[in-house]
Design a protein around this nucleic acid. Structure first.
Lengths: 131, 131
DNA sequence: CGGTATCCACTACGATACTG
DNA sequence: CAGTATCGTAGTGGATACCG
């Protein structure tokens, strides 16, 4: 609180917002969330991931895994056998990410129906104006 | 827990993952988070938002606000004065969104240093390989 | 003031082909 | 099996100009 009528400083001040945005751009994209989700169930091989994540291309799987590895969220282990066996697993830090992701999941489940409703209502209102 | 060595069913099963992804694609993008962050401090006018969100274009501000309004997360109030005065505010549902966003913010603050470290280490390791 | 409309650059991504 | 390399395209978003 301060003496003026103005706001208190919250977590949503500009600077703080930017780091969330920065994070979201790295971990909040479609494929990254899917990969983290898949790996949250345990270690997986490249092809397993590809099969378990519907619609992902080799290119995107590779890029996504590289990004996660670069950020220290996923560990890559190569078993130098023939044929090669490469396993991916969440690092301890990577595992902690599932918690806020789960918070988002809960929020989603709780509010998705209302949002879908809102969208229908919005569409209806727009249609009324147009037609 | 179940009898097999396999996983228990978690929030990260494919289907559930998809709704999180779907949500993220609507509320997880750069500008949406910035707008929600700005509005978490209270009602704001269009131009105020534009000034407070660094680098946003009119186009994106308008599109983002429309999206949020469509989803029932932001309410738009037009005061038919001259010059016009349009105010945006988070709906009750919109305000609940700040909570999981805050969880993400906390995670970010906690793990960002480690991630930056990891990235440096990764870059160094890559450089060593290349020569 | 609070937008809309148009254009255009950039990039993200899928498809495809090839490799150790 | 686990990738890399290349290409074409569709969508994203900034810049600019204009409107009620």
């Amino acid at each position: 609180m301060n003496a003026t009528h103005k706001r208190v400083r919250t977590a949503h001040e500009k600077e703080n917002c930017k780091v969330v945005v920065e994070m979201l751009s790295r971990i909040g994209d479609k494929w990254t969330v899917m990969v983290v989700g898949a790996l949250s169930e345990g270690t997986m091989r490249y092809t397993e991931l590809q099969r378990s994540i519907d619609g992902i291309s080799q290119r995107m799987l590779t890029l996504t895994l590289k990004g996660l590895e670069e950020d220290g969220l996923v560990a890559r282990t190569v078993h130098p056998t023939i044929p090669p066996r490469v396993e991916y697993t969440l690092t301890p830090m990577g595992r902690t990410l599932t918690k806020p992701l789960f918070a988002l999941y809960q929020w989603t489940m709780e509010h998705r129906p209302a949002m879908l409703e809102a969208r229908k209502a919005y569409a209806k209102a727009a249609a009324k104006k147009t037609g």
